[in-house]
Design a binder for these strands. Sequence first.
DNA 1: TCTGGGGTCCTAGGACCC
DNA 2: TCTGGGGTCCTAGGACCC
Length: 417
Amino acid sequence: MIGLIDCNNFYASCERIFRPDLEGRPIVVLSNNDGCVIARSLEAKALGIPMGSPLFKCREIIEKHNVKVFSANFALYGDISNRIMNITNEMVQKLEIYSIDEAFIEVPLKDETELVEFGAKLIKRIKQCTGVTVSIGFAPSKSLAKMGNKIAKKTMKFPQVCVLSDEDNRDQALKNTAIEDVWGIGRQYSKKLRGLGVDNAFDFTRLGDSFVTKHLSVVGLRLKRDLLGEDIIITADLPKRKNISDTRTFDYDYSSYDEVRERVVSFAAQIGRKLRQQSSNCSSLIVFVMSNRFKSNRYFNSSCIQLAEPTNSNIALAEAAEKALKTIFREGFTYKKAGVLACDISDANALQTSLFSDNTAERDANLMQAIDIINSKYGRHSIVLASQDKQSEWKMNQNYLSPRYTTVIDDIITAKL
DNA sequence: TCTGGGGTCCTAGGACCC
DNA sequence: TCTGGGGTCCTAGGACCC
């Protein structure tokens, strides 16, 4: 059987690990720049704070109900996630990490009672080791495991394990799942399906194959068959990224070229780091800039630049990014967001050099390796290019940031006796 | 005042090849 | 009136996920 394990209110739960005083109190976590609500504790959901809402739109509820607000602390969430995945990996046959707070697992069990027992054991262990509560859905296919997980979460009964093994309880679950709650059916498709009289997952599985293909393409057909218990949805097991991007909304509207250039060069350097992490090169870069989309006098432009040869060197990428930026930056506009995207990603071990190569590749490779080692030892921005901005993390509104309890020695928790 | 970031896959249509 | 047949590659756009 396949299981989907999913952390409950993950970011909010992470914030609570070292703040037991926040138990029972509503919590929200904000996106970069403290812009939108991207995670909510159960209590915050109950208050009706919507997912994705800009902070200023729910200020009133937050103040009225004493909601605790946090800036996103990805260093903390990433570390807790790693711990949970490692613990899980020790207890299952196969682990496939699907996102920061979700993983598919495979277990050699079929019997419902045994599965519930095993799930309870896993949940208890994760809770004991990390303080995070997870729920698990078991089923013969991934989309059904997802569905089981949702059902487990809803029951509010601990441990939150749901097994969809036989046809009867599978069909019951399909009938009880609204079409928009099905994994793979988003806003557009559910609107379309509702219009066609399909209200729940069960109705969807009754549609004809050619009808489904016509309206939802082969993706929809695969989903239909998966929901009927054939395990055919393939999720990639941490493959190399085919696209890599680094983009940010700025803390205020930038007007000078130098301000934007500094940030864009830093994005290019981050791209280099991410490429090296998966030993890839890229052979073209896209740079884009945009003004504040909520204000008038709007401007958006992007430029794609071909690199002389595939590379992952910060130096080459920064040069290219700056060149591209020059072609799209216009005086007279202000800029609220920019980004760099790496395209045409290839294997760094199979480098095709240019006929006119100036042989800086090897020099750069050694240099980048040294930079990566130093930065991983002493912190992200210990060594940067002179053209990068110096403290990019400060150039973000993070007014409610919690300590990086588990990854930075200065942030470690203090115990008083 | 204030509005996130990072991915995937599929399809249709155009340009091109022989 | 009637206008071949079989491919590939690339891109933009649209759907989805967390």
